[in-house]
Write a protein that binds this DNA or RNA. Structure first.
Length: 501
DNA sequence: GGGCCTTTGAAGTGC
DNA sequence: GCACTTCAAAGGCCC
């Protein structure tokens, strides 16, 4: 990972397993030890983000809050100071948002069991949660919530992580903020709708706006269409932004542990589940045992990794559509009939996607925000912005995503013990074309980073013609004047490139 | 319809 | 062990 801190970034990336959240004090000590280096890193990082972006982001409180503390008298830092002040003013001092608003989820050191046999939170988990969330009423959320959980008419998601309730003073109607391990699930939930002690964890900040009432309190309106949503089935959580037609739009892998409330959670491809799932998809013994011991039987997903509703883990993409073509191919080509059963079964295996890495999780979370801020739609450009913002994150902020990614990988490993990233390689997948190898040239890759200090709007023209980049994706054909020379030359229509080249 | 683009990180591959 | 490759997500664009 091309971190700019001279090795620190690699620590986060490759050695994220080393990150320990069991003792935050210790971590903070390390942080303070590395403060100077951190500042340098932040300085270098911030150099990647230009002032105009900072200015633009002044409209975004969360973005401002996420910035590392100011350390110099630069214009940018002054801007950040004012942004932070503005942010403080906005919350009125009553609500102190999480250190990283984009990460309002709770990370449990031991995912498998934050509880003691008696049902209370383990000291470790309690301490951890208390440290992580000073306002978190851990005790309140332990036994009581578990008891309440039994009384809840409809089980709620994220039981896996245990019941946690956050109480935010001064927000009576939002007294219970529940978090869910899904980045598309509203976080703020009304206690009248879901049991107040129902645990929900999320790593999305899109719905976590402490100062605003939850969307459903403003009327159940589809944020995209603006059209009021039809009332959902009482057994289905109204907080899942799902209409019956949008089944399967909640992608978080842990969400499969949500057997009832969020029934239509994961992508159900056309064709349903015609094919049996491979053994690799079975929940291993420990996981099954854990689930069985933690949750009522009906909530524990069956061994084939589909819970009762038949909703698979989001990492599973049943290759039904592709299989159809494969099958037709088989029908057309009798030679394929001679393939061994093994290969046939291989084809039938659903596509288990790789667990998302830290940056992917960050992208998923922040994409919408960037799209809204920058009014961009093209993912290539958005990803560039997100890449820069990722680098602008503090080490601590990044660490949160690394930790989440680690949890994802852990869960993925437990869900699919036999799975390997190799399985998804094009060479191992029949009928899937191997991606064309990108002929990356030396020096190609981040060249434009220096030339596009503003990741959102009014991107300056390329000044370095030696940077061979794909500008088409960024600017489009109608803005070829912003293309770099080499990119222009790839499109001979643009005569000027010949001159410039 | 499918590949490309773009980003970072994890994991696999080859030497 | 290192360098390189592939794949995760996303959606517009292009052939």
């Amino acid at each position: 990972m091309p971190q700019l801190n001279g090795g620190g970034g690699d620590d986060l990336g490759a050695n994220d397993e080393m990150i320990s959240f069991k003792d935050e004090g210790e971590q903070e000590e390390k942080i303070s030890e590395n403060l100077s280096a951190e500042r340098d890193l932040a300085d270098v990082k911030s150099s990647l983000v230009n002032e105009s972006e900072t200015n633009q982001n002044s409209s975004s409180d969360s973005e401002a809050e996420r910035r590392p503390p100011p350390r110099s008298e630069t214009f940018r830092d002054k801007t950040r100071e004012s942004l932070e002040e503005a942010a403080k003013r906005q919350d009125g001092g009553l609500f102190k948002s999480p250190p990283y608003p984009g990460y309002p989820f709770i990370m449990i050191p031991d995912l498998t069991s934050p509880y003691l046999p008696n049902g209370s939170l383990s000291p470790t988990a309690r301490t951890y949660l208390q440290m992580k969330w000073p306002l978190l009423d851990v005790n309140h959320g332990s036994l009581q919530s578990r008891q309440a959980l039994k009384d809840a008419r409809s089980p709620s998601p994220a039981h896996i992580v245990g019941p946690f309730c956050l109480e935010f003073p001064g927000q009576s109607d939002l007294s219970l903020h529940q978090f869910q391990l899904s980045n598309k699930v509203p976080v703020v939930q009304h206690p009248h709708h879901v049991h107040p002690l129902t645990p929900l964890i999320t790593y999305s900040n899109e719905h976590f706006t402490p100062g605003n009432p939850p969307p459903h309190l403003q009327g159940d309106v589809d944020p995209k269409t603006g059209i009021p949503r039809p009332p959902q089935h009482p057994d289905i959580s109204p907080y899942y932004p799902l209409s019956p037609g949008s089944v399967g739009q909640l992608p978080h892998p842990l969400g499969w542990l949500v057997p009832q409330q969020g029934q239509p959670v994961y992508p159900i491809t056309t064709g349903g589940f015609r094919h049996p799932y491979p053994t690799a998809l079975t929940v291993n013994a420990s996981m099954q045992s854990f689930l069985s011991s933690r949750f009522p039987h009906h909530m524990v997903p069956p061994h084939h990794s589909l819970h009762q509703t038949g909703i698979p883990h989001p990492a599973i993409v049943t290759p039904n559509v592709k299989q159809e073509s494969s099958h037709s191919d088989i029908g057309l080509n009798s030679s394929k009939h001679q393939d061994s059963k093994k290969e046939d079964e291989k084809k039938k295996q659903p596509h288990i996607k790789k667990p998302l890495n830290a940056f992917m999780l960050y992208m998923k979370e922040m994409r919408a925000k960037v799209v809204a801020e920058c009014t961009l739609k093209e993912s290539a450009a958005i990803n560039q912005i997100l890449g820069r913002r990722w680098h602008a994150l503090t080490r601590e902020e990044q660490a949160k995503y690394y930790e989440l990614a680690r949890k994802e990988r852990q869960l993925h490993m437990q869900l699919y013990p036999g799975w390997s990233a190799r399985d998804n390689y094009a060479g191992n997948q029949q009928g899937k074309k191997k991606k064309r190898k990108r002929d990356k040239q030396p020096g190609e890759g981040n060249e434009h980073r220096e030339y596009f200090p503003n990741p959102c709007l009014s991107l300056p023209p390329i000044t370095d013609l030696s940077a061979p980049k794909k500008c088409r994706a960024r600017f489009g054909l109608d803005q070829q004047n912003n293309w770099c020379g080499p990119c222009r030359c790839k499109y001979p229509k643009e005569v000027s490139c010949l001159v410039r080249a």
